[in-house]
Each structure stands twice: as C-alpha cells, then as structure tokens.
Amino acid sequence: MIWPVDLIIMLLVIICGLGALAVRDLLGAAILFGAYSFMMCLLWAIMGAVDVAFTEASVGAGVSTVLFVAAVFRTSRRTKD
C-alpha cells in the first residue's frame, strides 16, 4: 500500500503552499517555499519521475530559495498580506 504516503505528501504540499502565501514575513515565505519545493520533489520521486525530482531538489529547494533570500535581503522583509 503505497498510496497513503502519496496522499500525506500531497496534503503537506498544499499546506506548505498555503503557508508560504499566508505568512506575513517574506523570509519565512522564502523558506516555506523551499519546503514546498522539497515536498513536491518527494511527490515526483514517488510517481517515478526520478529525473524531474532530482532537478526539483537541486533547483527548487536549492537555487531558487537562495534567489528568494537574496531578493528579500536586497529589498525588505515587510509585507502587508
């Protein structure tokens, strides 16, 4: 029975996505977006798309989080929504 793992990770993906959008601090949003990407990478690994999961692990959870942190560092952490 592999599908419960699948469902739990899908739930975590949606929770992380909502969290990244709901949190009122841009640095927190960047980190939660990294968590979202990593959960998505796990989901694709379960679906058998190993190459896509590999790319997402290095791109989404690695480089794009750094780019978001750089953007927050060079602008401001403040957000109204």
Partner: peptide, 26 residues
C-alpha cells in the same frame, strides 16, 4: 499585493502544471 508573494504564487502555479504532466505519465 506584495510582489514577492506574487512571484511565489507564480511558482506554485508552475509546479502545479508540472505535477499535472508528471501524473499523466505515471
């Protein structure tokens, strides 16, 4: 209203479409 939040939303939309394609191939 925040531009970084908009970019995060854009990325979530992109990964959603990628999820759709990957799950078609499963």
């Amino acid at each position: 209203r925040n531009l970084v939040k908009k970019i995060v939303g854009m990325n979530i939309l992109q990964t959603a479409v990628i999820l759709f394609y990957v799950s078609i191939g499963a």
